[in-house]
């Protein structure tokens, strides 16, 4: 079991709940969602409790995350996009915290389950669709008709654009999910090698240094990936929101 790299993704019921035959138990996944959400909330409240004119270290971290996301959203979607700032900020902070919390040994990684990332990606997709249609009406479909394309190529290009639009939630969710899943499996596999080699006496223990170094390097890489994937998810959300607000202009 210790060597099973898949074990970390198992969901365990902590508080069993059954609603008309549908299992709605409070699981370890739910627990870590709560931990991620309360962790970010508590951090931001604590960091801003000083309300310093000259920020303390933690306060400047909170301010940096705020300005990082607001800058990203404004660059991608313009000042109109700032209406979606709380949403993008929540997405980024929630995913980042879930990814980072998952880096603790024995902790569960919420974003390593496709259903979670798919739900978030579909939420973005539906918001983009609804906002795009409400703001622009049928002009929203100009998104699928790039300007400056010969009329003969038009059906082909429009078909490609429509398909790429519809597959957005897939790529959006699978990118985050697969990165977290693969990274955690890889770390676990290499960590398992340490234990396995350690069982072969002195030579094995000496050889176990190599997978140990690999595990350390991968752990560092995974911290980067944890941040990067949250960033990519938020960045793509900004770009999609821009499509909803300005479907004509690319």
């Amino acid at each position: 079991m210790a060597n099973d790299p898949i074990h970390q993704f198992h969901i365990n019921r902590l508080v069993p709940l059954d609603f008309n035959g549908v299992d709605l138990s409070f699981t370890n996944s739910s627990l870590f969602m709560v931990i991620a959400a309360t962790g970010v909330s508590a951090f931001l409240v604590w960091a801003t409790s000083g309300r310093g004119l000259v920020p303390s270290r933690v306060q400047s971290v909170a301010e940096m995350s705020y300005e990082f996301i607001s800058g990203m959203l404004r660059d991608a979607a313009g000042s109109e996009g700032m209406k979606f700032f709380p949403f993008v900020f929540s997405l980024f902070m929630f995913i980042l915290m879930a990814n980072l919390v998952g880096m603790f040994p024995y902790f569960f990684t919420v974003t390593s389950h496709l259903v979670v990332t798919a739900a978030l990606a579909l939420l973005v997709f539906v918001i983009v669709l609804v906002v795009g249609l409400m703001r622009n009406g049928l002009h929203f479909f100009r998104l699928f008709v790039p300007s400056g394309i010969p009329i003969i190529l038009m059906p082909l290009v429009v078909a490609i654009e429509v398909i790429s639009f519809l597959t957005r939630p897939v790529s959006h969710s699978v990118r985050l999910f697969a990165n977290m899943l693969a990274g955690h499996i890889t770390i676990k596999v290499f960590a398992g090698f340490i234990v396995s080699l350690g069982a072969f006496g002195a030579v094995g223990a000496a050889g176990a240094v190599l997978p140990l170094l690999m595990t350390i390097a991968l752990t560092a890489l995974e911290f980067l990936v944890a941040f990067l994937q949250a960033y990519v998810f938020a960045m793509l959300t900004c770009i999609y929101i821009n499509d909803a607000l300005h479907p004509g202009g690319h």
């Binding site: 969901i11 709940l17 709605l24 699981t27 996944s29 739910s30 259903v115 979670v116 739900a119």
Partner: peptide, 9 residues
């Protein structure tokens, strides 16, 4: 666990 995860998410 899909339903549970979606609900708690």
């Amino acid at each position: 666990y899909f339903a549970s995860q979606l609900l708690w998410l």
